[in-house]
């Protein structure tokens, strides 16, 4: 099982804080992003590469990062704290 989390406006646009997918659902960040983007217009827009960052197990990750059972993947917009 892979846990997928969404933050800030992405969470609001998609209407999901997070979801679970089987470990076999996607073997990399790029594949996960693509599969989620295929769920509909809001998903495709929200998960567009470039405007949405991704972290795997709470560390910033690249598109080719490999996903394993038990991983936590988070998609979010560029940060605006401080």
């Amino acid at each position: 099982m892979i846990t997928v989390l969404f933050f800030a406006h992405l969470k609001e646009t998609l209407g999901y804080e997070g979801l679970h997918v089987e470990a076999t659902y996607a073997s990399s960040v790029a594949l996960l992003r693509q599969k989620l983007a295929d769920k509909g217009e809001a998903w495709a827009k929200g998960l567009a590469c470039g405007s949405t960052l991704v972290a795997v197990n709470q560390t910033m990750a690249k598109e080719d990062a490999v996903l394993n059972d038990g991983d936590e993947v988070a998609f979010f917009p560029p940060v605006t704290g401080g």
Binding site: F7, A55, M60, A74, F76, P78, V79, T80, G81, G82
Partner: peptide, 14 residues
Amino acid sequence: IMDYLKTQAPFWKK
């Protein structure tokens, strides 16, 4: 620290 915090730490303002 402030420059890095503003661009790397996962906070979002609404």
